[in-house]
Design a protein around this nucleic acid. Structure first.
Length: 643
RNA sequence: GCCGACAUAGCUCAGGGGUAGAGCAACUGAUUCGUAAUCAGUAGGUCCUCGGUUCAAUUCCGAGUGUCGGCACCA
């Protein structure tokens, strides 16, 4: 006699075990039509599942987030059936729902290509139209293993073998086809709907391990309805439109070529962007109580051996040898060992702590070729790196201080909010468990004191210590991990850094590794995509163009440009013999924030007509006023505050 | 690094066993024009590199390099 409690608090009693379908029908025909699955005591299950005991039940309809995930998961099953029916002998492996869609990994000698998509999608639509019910069955483990082995499905058999002993082996049938699956599923294949699209094929290692066979993965996107699908496709176009590689070329910011793979040729305009950002960061650091240093690019391997990097990252380091000397040097992949060298140069007193040592450190790492991506993932980059040498009891205060600084910088750069993740000890690590206990404990305590709330990111810490990761969200909703703060007890030990305490004895400092932007290269890529190249005035590579209407106005245009330049603005002059329409169009497409139009009238009156990027309005003001206003507007945010 | 796709003018792309085309950009000339494309003309190519097949390869085949999308990696 199950008593079923509904979300509104009402209770329904039934004579015996009932399925969710029955319960929904009992409540009303509308719900019976809309219910796709249900939550029994908070656990999502099939609607066809029987309820035999008292329970609280919530029905899941298409509007639910959970339903969208199920649509995607079921779409993966439909994809798998379609593929196996078109290419018998293809082995199935796994096919989960993911953000925005789903994928399914297949094993097949001949990989799929996007040309196969139309046929697969057509078959998928047939399967959806047939509306086979998803039927759950529980099989004995041995029978399930034998079944899949007999079909030559060795990956599925392996999956079942590796399931925990006490776990039920559930099989879902959809018509003729079946798959091992934990579930739950929608009622039938028709519930998947037709708002799906296959997107791309890719290789993926079995179980994500590069020692395993390569599978061929088909990605799809799936949504509740066509409108949502269209919105998603539009969003992808938007991301492509913002792609920093495209904008970098269009705006003449940088390029990369074969002779220096993974390194950037910064063109004049891109370099202005870079230096404006670097100057800003330098001011922020100075205000934050950091001292800036500069350390060598080439450092003897002995130091990397001592720090532990040679052991762990040797194959990711660029190594240099010289003919006349029996020495092996490495281009520094990071700055910390060098900073420790400065710290330990001479005796340090506790009075000097916390010692905040910053460097715009140019580092080289031999990244795997497949990892390279525009200016975001490169082999030569510059970090806004700093190490805070402090006593253990200063960790909390320094963490809080750093988070404040980071929040200010992000806000100035147009990112109002960020998330924090706490990454704790990885499997491969240096240092004892006791050390890790202390490091993690100190960081947790620091977060508490700083009022930082965080998500847990287990096992993702650096090999020498736990870290906080700071994640930005950009204008189109993508997350970027930029900032980091890492607590390190290991390196000071390995490189023998010490300070003299109040008690006249030697003590080990703790090192906090920290960065706000991460690397300039990557962050500039993010900034470019964040603004789609339409930078705020202070960052814009070209801040204004003076465009003349007639040749007679050319001398005045030059005078306007000179005035603005004297006021500190980056200005170009366009006195070509072109129509003003063409000039406006060109400079607008080039994303110049301000166009100053001057014709005979302006020349006579000593004015300029200001046109802002993105607007059609024009504002006619006296030249001197324009120079003053624009120069003011072009001040970096921190200088504007202290003006 | 692994899987797949791709590589043709500055850019975006078409083409195809007999050494190649468009649009935009560039250059020249005419036009002097008031807020998102004035008109006309000219020039521009190692068809990524190296091998192979062929009478002939930019095209077909192989290798390499690079790029792109994933996977793996990211101190």
């Amino acid at each position: 006699m199950p008593a079923i409690t509904l979300p509104d608090g009402s209770v329904r009693r039934f004579d015996g075990p009932v399925t969710g379908t029955t319960v929904a029908e009992a409540i009303g025909p509308g719900l019976a039509r809309a219910a796709l699955a249900m939550e029994i005591d908070g656990r999502l299950v099939d609607l066809s599942r029987e309820i035999s005991d008292d329970a609280s039940v919530r029905f899941v309809t298409r509007k639910d987030e959970a339903a969208l995930e199920m649509i995607r998961h079921d779409a993966a099953h439909v994809l798998a059936e379609a593929v196996q029916s078109l290419w018998p002998g293809t082995q199935v492996t796994i096919g989960p729902s993911i953000e925005n869609g789903f994928y399914y990994d297949f094993y097949r000698n001949e990989p799929f290509t996007p040309e196969d998509f139309p046929a697969i999608e057509a078959r998928m639509r047939e399967i959806v139209a047939a509306n086979a019910a998803f039927a759950r069955e529980v099989w004995p483990r041995d029978a399930a293993i034998r079944f899949f082995e007999d079909r030559g499905e060795r990956f599925k058999a392996e999956l079942i073998r590796d399931l925990p002993e006490d776990e039920q082996i559930s099989i879902y049938r959809q018509g003729e086809w079946l798959d091992l699956c934990r579930g739950p599923h929608l009622r039938g294949t028709a519930d998947v709907g037709n708002a799906f699209k296959l997107m791309k094929v890719a290789g993926a290692y079995w179980r994500g391990d590069h020692r395993n066979p390569m599978l061929t993965r088909i990605y799809g996107t799936a949504w509740r309805d066509q409108k949502e699908l269209d919105a998603h496709l539009h969003q992808l176009e938007e991301a492509e439109r913002r792609d920093h590689r495209r904008i970098g070329r269009e705006m003449d910011l940088f390029h990369i070529q074969e002779e220096a793979v993974g390194s950037i040729f910064w063109h004049a305009k891109g370099w202005r962007l870079y230096t404006v950002l670097q100057d800003y960061m330098r001011r922020a650091q100075t205000r934050g109580g950091y001292q800036e240093v500069r350390t060598p690019q080439l450092v003897d391997r002995a130091l990397w051996e001592a720090s532990g990097h040679w052991d762990k990252y040797r194959e990711h380091m660029f190594v240099a040898t010289v003919e006349d000397e029996d020495k092996t040097l490495a281009l520094k992949p990071m700055n910390c060992p060098c900073h420790v060298q400065i710290f330990r140069h001479g005796l340090r007193s506790y009075r000097e702590l916390p010692l905040r040592m910053a460097e715009f450190g140019a580092c080289h790492r031999y990244e795997p070729s497949g990892a390279l991506h525009g200016i975001m993932r490169v082999r030569s980059f510059t970090q806004d790196d700093a190490h805070i040498f402090c006593a253990e009891e200063q960790i909390a205060a320094e963490t809080a201080r750093f988070v404040r600084m980071l929040a200010d910088v992000y806000a100035d750069l147009g990112f109002e909010s960020f998330r924090v993740k706490f990454a704790d000890r990885p499997e491969q690590r240096a240092g004892t468990d006791e050390t890790w206990d202390r490091a993690e404990g100190a960081l947790i305590e620091a977060c508490r004191l700083a009022g930082v709330s965080y998500e847990h990111n287990p096992g993702e810490g650096a090999f020498y210590g736990p870290k906080l990761e700071f994640v930005l969200r950009d204008a189109i909703g993508r997350d970027w991990q930029c900032g980091t703060l890492q607590v390190d007890y290991v390196l000071p030990e390995r490189l023998d850094a010490s300070f003299i305490g109040e008690d006249s004895a030697r003590h080990r400092p703790v090192m906090l590794h920290r960065a706000i932007l991460g690397s300039f290269e990557r962050f500039l890529g993010i900034l470019i995509e964040q603004h789609a190249g339409r930078f705020p005035l202070w960052l814009a590579p070209v801040q204004a163009v003076v465009a003349s209407i007639v040749t007679d106005a050319a001398p005045y245009a030059q005078q306007v440009a000179d005035t603005l330049q004297a006021a500190g603005l980056v200005v170009e002059t366009d006195i070509r013999n072109e129509k003003i329409n063409a000039k406006i169009r060109e400079h607008s497409l080039a994303r110049v924030p301000v166009i100053l139009v001057v014709g005979r009238k302006e020349a006579e009156e000593g004015t300029v007509a200001i046109r802002r990027l993105g607007g059609a309005a024009q504002e006619v003001v006296a030249l001197d006023d324009a120079a003053r206003t624009l120069a003011d507007e072009a001040l970096p945010p921190d200088l504007r505050r202290t003006r």
